[in-house]
């Protein structure tokens, strides 16, 4: 799921985990609707969906050892007898490329990349089916970013995880994701298989976004579409298509109705494409 600030991508991630209530619509996980699930059932579901945070510094409690924080997941859901916790924590740390003896240390002893690995280990501790990764690499240096992305891709394959990967960074998405949803001001602009969307973007916003991203191969890039102005406030979005105020292809009809998301696997919300 890609979008710029104010696109609502993080909010959707929180909604998907049932951390925020939805005003309208349905979110179901493994056939159970979150909004109507009993608190006890929701707690059980929580075990099967986990979150990886953006900020490797704020997401770990500075006052407790990383081992204790990972073990929390085990004791909350009573997944293992207490005696087996230490061994399982060691296993989880090894799984994310750290050493079991790191369990006794406090978060400040680790670098940003290592903290992010600890955050992933904590998320994996409950044995989730779904991992929501909210900009998990955007706070990291590029050389570390690539390591964490490789780890996520590897875990996804090995554990068969479903992953909702939230990012503002198109190249990162290109390499990690099977399908992509492009958001703008809380609405889906375009959705489809990653390769397809990146190769043949249909929506003017997707086209502008792709062309705005700097590239190592600046020479062979497509011509840059420069969007004018700033995105409007999410509190007061424009009528009709929310992108029309910055869209280079806008026509008067864009203001009158919200364009529906049309198409089969590759879907676009633009009246010029309909």
């Amino acid at each position: 799921m890609v979008g710029e600030s104010g696109s609502g991508k993080s909010t959707i991630g929180r909604l998907a985990l049932g951390l925020l209530p939805a005003t309208a619509g349905r979110i179901s996980f493994a056939g159970t609707e979150l909004a109507t699930a009993a608190p006890e059932a929701l707690r059980t579901l929580r075990r099967r969906m986990q979150l990886v945070f953006q900020d490797p510094y704020g997401s770990l409690d500075p006052r407790r050892t990383v081992g204790a924080q990972i073990a929390d997941a085990l004791s909350i859901h009573a997944l293992l007898p207490k005696a087996a916790h230490a061994a399982r924590v060691g296993e989880l740390l090894a799984q994310v490329g750290l050493a079991p003896e790191h369990a006794g240390r406090y978060p400040h002893a680790f670098s940003g990349g290592q903290r992010q690995r600890i955050g992933i280990a904590r998320a994996l501790a409950t044995g989730p089916d779904l991992l929501v990764a909210d900009e998990p690499v955007s706070a990291l240096d590029v050389s570390v970013q690539a390591q964490v992305m490789a780890l996520l891709a590897d875990l996804r394959a090995r554990l068969g995880l479903a992953m909702l990967f939230i990012s503002h960074d198109l190249p990162v998405v290109r390499h990690l994701c099977d399908r992509v949803i492009v958001l703008y001001l809380g609405r889906v602009m375009e959705e489809g298989p990653t390769a397809e969307v990146f190769a043949r973007p249909q929506h003017p916003y997707t086209q502008a976004l792709l062309s705005a991203a700097p590239s190592l191969h600046a020479a062979q890039r497509r011509t840059r579409i420069l969007l004018q102005g700033d995105p409007p406030s999410p509190a007061a979005p424009p009528s009709g298509c929310v992108f029309r105020t910055r869209c280079p292809q806008a026509v008067p009809a864009c203001a009158t109705s919200i364009p529906p998301l049309l198409g089969t696997t590759h879907r676009v919300a633009c009246i010029n494409q309909a």
Partner: peptide
């Protein structure tokens, strides 16, 4: 060279990290 390889690029191969700190 390693830094260039770790930078994700749309058209290039998947990025590779640099081990160590």
């Amino acid at each position: 060279a390693a830094l260039l390889k770790s930078a994700p690029d749309e058209d290039g191969p998947p990025p590779e990290g640099i081990p160590g700190i």
